[in-house]
């Protein structure tokens, strides 16, 4: 293993949470998550020679991971929302329900049902990136991001309420 590869693996190891989060958000099935994890790792390695350190490694990795996840398609039936729900780990204990956990689950389901682009925006928002930073990663203006984020929040509020009532 050469110095560059060792350096890269070390950075990837320190930032693996990013890849896990992207895989969990974009894929529903374990096998697909593993495939996407591998694809992101390989894609990051291919592009690593172009990484100049102008941005933080984590920001650069987000860009690679989101680009890969957005252009990574699996058979439609596997991505159906119903699978997202059935695949999600059960948080609640029927006899002793925690409303916060139920709300989190309802919100998580709502996020899982968003489009690929909206998921990317939400993911970066959850990581506390500013609208200006999100706009650099997505490639549209910060104003546009703000408008989209407001719409997403409304969409999530409504979907979460519905999901919460169902849970």
């Amino acid at each position: 293993m050469d110095y560059k590869e060792k350096d890269f693996i070390q950075l990837l190891n320190q930032n693996q949470k990013i890849i896990h989060k992207v895989c969990n958000l974009y894929m529903n099935w374990q096998e697909d998550k593993e495939d996407l994890f591998q694809e992101i790792t390989l894609q990051a390695w291919k592009a690593y020679s172009q990484f100049r350190g102008e941005a933080k490694f984590s920001t650069w990795l987000y860009r690679v991971a989101l680009n890969t996840a957005i252009t990574f398609f699996r058979k439609d039936k596997k991505n159906a929302f119903i699978d997202t729900v059935s695949e999600m780990p059960e948080l609640t204990v029927p006899m002793d329900r925690d409303p916060i956990e139920d709300k989190t689950k309802a919100m998580y389901e709502a996020i899982a049902a968003l489009s690929k682009i909206d998921k990317a925006i939400v993911m970066l928002y959850l990581e506390d990136y500013s609208y200006a930073e999100i706009s650099e990663i997505i490639g549209i203006t910060a104003n546009n991001i703000a408008v989209k984020m407001n719409r997403i929040k409304v969409k999530l509020r409504e979907a979460t309420l519905k999901n919460f009532e169902r849970i």
Binding site: A47, S49, Q50, F51, R63, N67, E136, I137, I140
Partner: peptide
């Protein structure tokens, strides 16, 4: 394949 573009530009190029 070696470039890391913003998502919109990446989609356009792909």
């Amino acid at each position: 394949d070696q470039s890391v573009l913003p998502i919109k530009e990446n989609l356009q190029q792909l």
